[in-house]
Amino acid sequence: MKKIALLLIIGIALLNCKKNKTITDCGDKMCTYEFVSYGIRFVDNKGEGAEVKDFSVINQRTGESLKANSSIYTSTVKGAFIVVDDGNKLQLSENGDDLKITGTSVATNQTKSVVIKMGGGKCACHISKISGPDQVVFD
């Protein structure tokens, strides 16, 4: 009975060691506790915030729809949307993914899309914008 208990303890210890190994796969990193998010703004032809419907973000590599956890806090600024945040980090590749952002103007019913490139991945501390616009302009 003691041998079985000892084998069980050794087995659990070995499993825990294997779990810790995945942490070191990324090397020694110092990450901050900040929470990074990236937003985009939809504006009309005068540069004013535009009311938008049918807002969407699609990862072009995976075809997956993305939704930022912090997106619920943007409803106070007209035309402003959080595209992705650190909660989406694992859904993005380290080299960056093209994200297609689309929205339709409530005033003109015009639909516009832009593509931005965002990086993340399991070893990244935070998401990062690689390229793309900060706003979408309706005609």
Rank of each mutant, 00 (worst) to 15 (best):
M1H: 10
K2N: 13
K3L: 10
A5C: 09
A5G: 10
A5P: 06
L7V: 14
L7M: 12
L8C: 14
I9Y: 07
I9R: 07
G11I: 15
A13H: 09
L15Q: 13
L15W: 14
N16P: 02
K19L: 11
N20F: 10
K21V: 15
K21P: 08
K21L: 15
C26L: 10
C26N: 11
G27D: 03
G27P: 10
D28Q: 13
K29S: 05
M30A: 10
M30T: 14
C31P: 08
T32I: 05
T32P: 07
E34F: 07
F35L: 07
S37Y: 11
S37H: 11
Y38P: 00
I40H: 04
I40C: 09
R41M: 13
F42C: 04
N45S: 15
G49K: 08
A50Q: 10
A50E: 11
A50M: 03
V52L: 04
D54K: 13
F55L: 05
V57W: 00
R61E: 02
R61A: 06
G63F: 11
E64S: 08
E64Y: 06
L66I: 05
L66A: 04
A68P: 07
S70N: 05
S71N: 08
I72C: 01
Y73W: 11
Y73V: 14
T76R: 14
V77F: 05
V77N: 08
V77A: 07
V77S: 10
K78V: 13
I82Y: 09
I82K: 10
V84W: 09
D86T: 07
G87V: 02
N88H: 08
N88K: 12
N88S: 11
L90A: 12
Q91P: 05
Q91Y: 11
L92Q: 00
L92A: 01
E94S: 09
E94H: 00
G96K: 08
G96M: 02
G96L: 03
K100L: 05
I101N: 02
I101F: 05
I101Q: 00
G103D: 01
T104Q: 03
V106D: 01
T108C: 03
T108S: 13
T108V: 04
N109Q: 12
V114P: 04
I116D: 02
K117H: 06
K117Q: 08
M118L: 11
G120H: 03
C123L: 04
C123H: 06
C125Y: 03
H126E: 00
I127R: 08
S128F: 10
G132H: 02
G132E: 04
F138D: 01
D139R: 12
